[in-house]
Design a protein around this nucleic acid. Structure first.
Length: 257
DNA sequence: GGAAATGTTCCCTC
DNA sequence: CGAGGGAACATTTC
């Protein structure tokens, strides 16, 4: 569920709370997460992110890597009350980090060397020529292409629809058929949408909440996602829903061609 | 009861 | 073999 803006929001909120702080204890509640190894006594040196993947660098040089997938959330808890669906609890001197995750898809692993990803992060300045290159000859819908983490890391189902709406490009177009000018629009729209969503601390369409259990605000800025049947804010046409590779996709038939 | 849900990976088919 | 898509994972909510 969390895409790049939600994970970036968590990183920014985590840094003042856990960087430089010692992990006092680790409690694994869900057996699926067992085998993490001892973390007690390690200090969190830094909190980073690539795409939707978050990595804490620890004082022993290892990395604790989180992939929150669909329903994973991290909460900072100062009291005793543990949220529902807690799978993992990390205790620090001033409070606890809880991984809450009803669908239990999230993964947490301890790595010695974090595997480098060749894909650019969604907040990097995307090179339209590189995108066009990677898409050459490919028939899959441009929306699926953008959601492929090997293309750009961090774009998921909500922001793919939003980026293509802002770029004025239909999500159904084969990726290989886009012009250089259209890739340039996608690169610009990606930066714009992701940065705005971070400023809003993510999209709380149903139940996304940030580290402090506050809702994001980007749901109030969505142009198409979840708005099928409603009117496009720019051209007044009614927004459509389609299913692409099994995922709901929203677009405006008026301003996306 | 059925469908859908902000993700990733495995497997099947063309 | 590569590309693309569907199923599976597990649970809640509408």
């Amino acid at each position: 569920m969390p895409e790049l803006p939600e994970v970036e929001t968590l990183c920014r909120q985590l840094r003042p709370v856990i960087v430089g702080r010692e992990i006092l204890s680790l409690r694994v509640i869900d057996a699926k997460l067992e085998g993490l190894g001892p973390l007690e006594g390690r200090t969190v040196r830094s909190v980073g992110r690539h795409g939707k993947r978050m990595a804490w660098v620890l004082s022993d040089g290892r990395c604790l890597v989180f992939q929150l997938r669909m329903t994973g959330r991290l909460f900072w808890i100062e009291g005793e009350r543990i949220p529902p669906h807690a799978r993992l609890v990390l205790t620090f001197p001033a409070g606890r980090i809880v991984l809450s995750d009803p669908r239990r898809f999230a993964t947490v692993e301890l790595c010695v060397t974090p595997a480098p990803s060749p894909a650019p992060d969604g907040l990097d300045a995307l090179d339209p020529a590189r995108l066009a290159d990677a898409a050459r000859g490919r028939r899959l819908p441009v929306k699926s292409f953008l959601m492929d983490q090997k293309t750009v890391a961090g774009i998921g189902n909500i922001y793919a629809s939003e980026i293509l709406h802002r770029a004025g490009i239909s999500p159904l177009r084969p990726a290989g058929g886009l012009s250089r000018a259209e890739w340039k629009k996608i690169a610009a729209a990606t930066a714009h949408v992701l940065e705005e969503a971070i400023e809003s601390r993510g999209t709380s369409i149903s139940d996304w909440m940030d580290l402090h259990a506050d809702r994001g605000e980007y749901q109030h800025h969505l142009g198409v996602y979840g708005r099928q049947g409603e009117r496009c804010k720019t051209c007044r046409r009614r927004i459509l829903r389609a299913v692409i590779a099994g995922r709901s996709t929203f677009y405006c038939p008026g301003c996306q061609t």
